[in-house]
Design a protein around this nucleic acid. Structure first.
Lengths: 215, 215
DNA sequence: CCGCTGCTCCCCCGCGCGGGGGATCCGCCT
DNA sequence: AGGCGGATCCCCCGCGCGGGGGAGCAGCGG
């Protein structure tokens, strides 16, 4: 009985690499591929894979949403999520969405194959680092403020954070937004209060680390 | 006459994908692979490739430094740099280092092959977006300072920048580094002077945008 | 109608930060 | 021997920033 694998990644090179790795195994076969999450539900329905290798970051419909859709549809396919960093925010969202495991993109072919077999057996695959991070966040959220909560910022506050993360001073932001400096100061204060950052530097760090700002 | 190609990328999957793409062409052959820039000079010397596909972001020695080393050594190999974003800072550094062209990581296999043939013919390969960005920066730099120059920072200054980009205050950094606050202030001032940043926030922005800090 | 939220602007105050100086010690290279 | 860059510590000074208040106005929903 061969293991049926579907590949969902927007980078053709990664798909080729995965296909080469999976295809080199006698008991595995690539039964379908997709470049984003839009047609995943359909793809899985047509090809009934045992394991779906799913990239988190994709245009249009990302891996998180696609995973959620699969789980809601009652699919039997196991989802192995591909991510760049082990402590990425996406990891935890994907966990909540119903992913069965994670693979770092810089994984070796052996690790990829091991990951596929692991989730195919019904086990879950997690990184020690990621689990530790999860525990850390849980402990922090039960006690105090909670998550960064960048989405709890109002549109204006998000705009201000974006400008802050571009390196602008309060005066420059006021100029850009055509408002008074006092107004900017209020927004900055709100951003700091909501994010728990002590100063603008920490807020900027948060903006980049959380993926709020593109790198 | 077959085109000899060498692959330098720290992600095994990307290497596999490129190898599959290149290997599928009858007139191309992968003659060597490396996981970082440390052994590139040696690799090129041994395998004498026509084209080197080089990732910009790698541990230890990155693609920029490796490209610079190749050019300085008078190698005849053409360098095709792999990058994630077309307007990445690395693109311009790589240009200055002597790269012959750029490929986006999300390129299709056809684009990869076309890129290899293009640089092999001695032409250069650039993205319209990248060229426009280059023109924009040139216009801006002729008036002011120039490049970020994060690699011109001393080890201690780099350490300080890393801590700054983690959100630490001067006092916290002094505590962490077991030195006086005045010392930290000196290092911070040096970082700002060398990078052209106006304040610590801009330095942190630079650290993330340039890839100096992992996201 | 009233309350809530978001956006706008204002005051005072303390402190961390950044600019501009200088000084000492060490190790390396010439 | 002398020079030089790196790391360490010190001074004064001005200003932007952040904390803690308050207030008016629009829109939206109970």
């Amino acid at each position: 009985m061969t293991l049926r694998v579907a590949l969902v990644d927007d980078e053709p090179l990664i798909r080729r690499g995965l296909a080469a790795v999976v295809g080199s195994e006698p008991d595995m076969a690539v039964v379908g591929e997709a470049g984003d999450g839009t047609g995943v539900l359909d793809l899985v329905g047509r090809t009934s894979p045992d394991v779906v290798l799913m990239d988190v970051r994709m245009p249009r419909v990302d891996g998180i949403a696609a995973t959620r859709a699969l789980v809601r549809a009652g699919s039997a396919a196991r989802v192995l999520v591909l991510t760049t960093f082990a402590n990425d925010d996406h990891v935890f969202e994907a966990l909540a969405a119903g992913a069965d495991g994670f693979l770092l993109k810089r994984s070796s072919p052996e690790e990829v194959l091991h990951g596929i077999r692991t989730v195919a057996r019904g086990e879950s695959l997690l990184f020690p680092d990621a689990v530790r991070e999860l525990a850390r966040r849980h402990a922090r959220s039960t006690g105090s403020t909670g998550d960064p909560g960048l989405d709890r910022l109002t549109p204006r506050e998000q705009e201000v954070l974006r400008l802050m993360a571009a390196g602008l001073s309060n005066a420059e932001m006021a100029d850009r937004l055509v408002v008074g400096v006092e107004t900017v100061r209020s927004h900055v204060a709100a951003v700091l209060a909501k994010t728990g950052a002590r100063d603008r530097t920490q807020a900027v760090v948060l903006a980049y680390r959380s993926g709020f700002m593109p790198v």
